[in-house]
Design a protein around this nucleic acid. Structure first.
Length: 302
DNA sequence: ATGCCAGGCACAGCCTGA
């Protein structure tokens, strides 16, 4: 099963590119962010014609999230991130699909910082940590997928120098992401590719795409009940090179086995202890050691 | 240090994104 996340940056103008990507890569489940459209104009029919049923939560001009699934529609669990009844921004959708719980999220950008937008970002992050802790411990296979608007480390950006004051690189933003990971979540891309320069976003300025001057801010996190099924992870970066592309490229994971494995994972989670951060770090270290023994060709930063 | 590009909308210049 292929699960992907894609910040489309406007589903109305980006629909041809979205349909093209769906046809070529055929993901089974897709989390979308930045629909920038009200529910009334969501291209439900076009997506259905392409074989996808959708759950969506739009908003005028900004934000907006959706979960697509091949065939059967995702079963909605919740449409808001708990913790702030006054938060009316469409940034969170949670659903059950193909035996797993998928949380589609669009974390606030937070610029300019400091300021109220940055405060909102950190507050949203705290609410996410709170809710994610419950999801992690639920014994269900869970994936948190979306645009986290955080560059986890300086290795996840072409050059941090000109972004030092940006909300995406602030120590507070990074600490919040670290704190989330410390619950035990596996950062799929980094877990499988510890030594690769990987980017998911290239802004429209200064020919950043042409120079591969990117940032890794779109993430798919897996809990202990789902992580054992992780087979592969990658970025469909070709999408960023198309005409009228979004400034993000889709990120995906390939999850092995089916319902049997899912049930097994749930059963295992009931008896075994969840994956501790230390264990994850050890796994990364082991992978690094394996790579060091036989060095692989390394992508250039820019 | 700033704008660079792009989408959305009170359709004309802003605001927002990251």
């Amino acid at each position: 099963m292929k699960l992907a996340t894609f910040n489309v940056n406007g589903i109305k103008t980006r629909l041809p590119q979205l349909l093209d990507w769906l046809a070529k890569e055929s993901p089974d489940v897709v989390c979308l962010q930045e629909l920038k459209a009200l529910d009334g104009v969501f291209p439900r029919a076009e997506l259905e014609a392409a074989g996808y049923a959708a759950l969506f939560k739009g908003q005028r001009s900004w934000n907006g999230v959706a979960i697509l699934a091949k065939g059967e529609a995702p079963l909605e669990i919740r449409r808001e991130l708990p913790g702030d009844a006054a938060d009316d921004q469409s940034r969170y959708l949670e659903a059950a699909v193909d035996g797993i719980i998928v949380a589609c999220l669009y974390l606030p950008n937070g610029n300019p910082q400091p300021g109220p937008k940055f405060d909102y970002k950190l507050a949203w992050f705290e609410r996410l940590q709170q809710h994610a802790a419950g999801l992690y411990a639920s014994e269900h296979p869970v994936a948190l997928a979306g645009d986290f608007n955080v560059v986890p480390t300086d290795f996840d950006i072409y050059n941090p120098k000109s972004w030092r004051k940006d909300a995406l690189l602030q120590p507070e933003s990074r600490a919040a992401y670290e704190k989330l990971l410390a619950q035990g979540w596996v950062d799929s891309l980094r877990h499988l590719h510890p030594d690769e320069r990987i980017y998911t976003f290239w802004d429209y300025f200064r020919q950043h795409w042409q120079r591969n001057a990117g940032l890794r801010i779109d993430h798919i996190l897996l809990n202990a009940a789902l992580a054992p099924r992780l087979k592969a992870a990658g970025v469909d970066s070709w999408v960023r090179g198309e005409e009228h592309a979004s400034d993000h490229a889709p990120v995906w994971v390939e999850l092995g086995a089916g319902k049997g494995a899912a049930a097994k994972a749930v059963k295992a989670a009931k008896t075994a202890k969840p994956v501790k951060p230390a264990k994850t770090a050890k796994a990364v270290k082991t992978a690094k050691a394996a790579k060091a023994a036989k060095p692989a060709p390394r992508k250039k930063a820019s």
